[in-house]
Amino acid sequence: MGTGPLRLRLHLDHPGAGVDLPRLCAELQQVIGRGLDLEVVPSERSAFCPADPAARRALAQAIAATKVTHPATDRPSGQGTRRRPFEGEIQFEARRLGGDASAAGILYDGFWLQQVLAAALPSTQMRRDWLHLLLTNRLIGTFDDSDRRWHARMVLCGQPSIVSTTGMVLAPALPRDFYTQRHLHEQSGSGVLGEHLRAQMGEAVVQHDDPRQTQVAVSLTLQALLYWTTLEAFCTTAGCRLVDAHTQAALVALHEDEPALCPRHGHWAGAL
């Protein structure tokens, strides 16, 4: 690494009520210590919500293009049958950037979105000692060539890294029965029931606006930092908060008490 501390810049994009930002920052500082220069970038200074109307519209248009509207046929980075966004989709994204919209549920092509956001960053900060991280409720997905399907993700490492609070709810798998039930409800045409079905599972799963999202966000941010500094994607030591949780049960268990790093990653964090 360089001589100074690693500059981590957090950008907020409606992460939701589950994330306690001061606690998130305090926790990160505590885990990493002086090796981290952490700043929450206010939206008026964030490259991810330009104040200039033309720049904002251009970014909105680029983001709208990364929507996955036809999961069966859309392929990464605009391959497949992807449409060009129409005026309303661009205006919705512009409203989101301006803070007038915040609803989640649309799936975005994660790596394409990351490219779009990277292009908005000042070139002077595209350096190894700067890591930008977007904490968002946008749902991001990546296409898996092995099963030819889109999968929701909690975190995408790289510059900028993306941590998705909606991904914490939707990405880790639930028992098969949940999806069968939800599918049946979807067939009945109600959009509210899927939410109720999940709410009924209570604390067994991470919910929308769940306060446990703060600790999960800390883990995922550490995962992004680990990748950025070592190219190591996650940990395989049981109990380490850098373990890649594939199921809600695993994610909840990992964050039940005091989530911790394994000795090896504890050492990594201290040495940053």
């Binding site: 036809h70 205006q91 549920g105």
Partner: peptide, 28 residues
């Protein structure tokens, strides 16, 4: 004049919010 997405299931569990927030100009 426009290419609408059509209906394909997205990962949406709270579509009321999305409906309200998508309300607005869709075409000049």
């Amino acid at each position: 004049l426009v290419d609408l997405p059509g209906h394909e299931s997205m990962w949406v569990e709270r579509s009321e919010d999305l409906i309200v927030e998508h309300t607005g100009v869709a075409y000049p």
